[in-house]
Design a protein around this nucleic acid. Sequence first.
DNA 1: CGATTCTTTGATCGCTGTCAAACTCGGTGG
DNA 2: CCACCGAGTTTGACAGCGATCAAAGAATCG
Lengths: 262, 262
Amino acid sequence: MHPREFPSDHGEAIRVLSSTTSTVDLEEIRRDCGYSAILDFHLPVGLSVEDLQTLNSTVRDMLPLDRGHTLFRQGESFGALYVVRAGSLKTFVEGSEGDLQILGFHLPGDIMGIGGLTNEHYPCSAQALERSSIFELRYNQLQEVSASVPALHHQLLRVISGALVTEQRHSVMMGKQQAQRRLAFFIRRMADRYARLSRDPQVLALPMSRGDIANYLGLALETVSRLFTKMESDGLLAVNRKSVDILRRDLLDEMCGGEIDI
Amino acid sequence: MHPREFPSDHGEAIRVLSSTTSTVDLEEIRRDCGYSAILDFHLPVGLSVEDLQTLNSTVRDMLPLDRGHTLFRQGESFGALYVVRAGSLKTFVEGSEGDLQILGFHLPGDIMGIGGLTNEHYPCSAQALERSSIFELRYNQLQEVSASVPALHHQLLRVISGALVTEQRHSVMMGKQQAQRRLAFFIRRMADRYARLSRDPQVLALPMSRGDIANYLGLALETVSRLFTKMESDGLLAVNRKSVDILRRDLLDEMCGGEIDI
DNA sequence: CGATTCTTTGATCGCTGTCAAACTCGGTGG
DNA sequence: CCACCGAGTTTGACAGCGATCAAAGAATCG
């Protein structure tokens, strides 16, 4: 019942694609999550069949999670990382007075649970926004494999570091940008993530509620609603409930200002 | 000249203290940085003398950095992590219009440069707030050692994960808390970090300017100044330029609200 | 001791949170 | 099929926090 934290979404990749033609079901993962899956990890030369087997054994398919159901809960002991295969989730911390704060939204390919590495406990909860499929990466098995596969170790560091960088950008945005720019950044980032998943980046089907978006961006629900309306009347978007069409990407980018890589 | 990002401060530890009585100068580091140095890393059983040598060789002492001088610059190619030995630094990103955003302040024992792991370039700059001593950890050497010392690898993950968790808390604060609570959090966290460095946690000698604090907290410089004045007239602090005495820690904690571990 | 930088204090304005109410959509049951 | 209901969303009115503009005061450095 205490606030900790957790990974935000970030576009980092661990491409688990052996250059050899091995029959790993990691291939299957890659298909599902699209090109930029977290598990998208370029295995280097010299990976034994045995290593591949072990690596394979670390990935466990889980039963689908229904909307509103919890993958792991803040405070639970850490045991595994998770990768979204299909659907979407949100991670959040709960304050002492029951108030909750959303840390990030997770689309296929995104990794979750990184924050648990520090102190043996998940610092946040993860909940499905819709019916979702998830992979589990048992951490001790992952450790085992990465001991024999240096590249995996390095890639793990890269992914976490990437999450850190993403989170820092988010901090900066929360501290400096005003409401409409925050929403613009949010929409643009969702579009970019859609693109990496080979979805149409101009037609977003946002799986989260207005309240979730507002909470994530540190705004009031009403402000977000008003901004959607405004951006629609500005001809920037076509909004219909969860569906958001980006009509003028140029104006959206302009609204985000010079900062290209946020 | 593009905004990226970088590690915030965080209290994580890599205790580089061999249980054997080897004559590593890592001992010296530990002395300087106090108990909670980043390099404070419990080496497990079975570390060969050779490993220790290699580990030792990764740590390189650098020339002291004068106030205002830069340790590494945003965009430079990544080659090493850095640990503060004495003094203090700030890390920051520069926007396209020359605006800069401070990501964190770094005290002895804190690690810097983690963000560079993701994409071969430092995503932020690091600059000394005062004359500072710094250790350099060449990354390729670190990789080499951690390949033979699994615990080091794990500890590295833990440290980065801890930085991520800290950054997420910072995001939440920036999004939700109002000005005076942000400053209260900031002061309390500085006090806690001082305590871990075995300094008096009631008498802070803040190395950064009001402007830096304001920038870091996403506030206007004037607001921070006003709040210091207010907290002083409330009998909470005794403020004199860079020197801040915490007179009523209880009120400070109260002002931070129920959230204990932010 | 002058010049520069940092800090404090004051006055004003606008963004955005808050309170309040109407509206839409989807589902449920009569 | 329709009425009802509740969650989610939209819209309006209003006020307050904190940014911005402005200027004076304090400290540091050459």
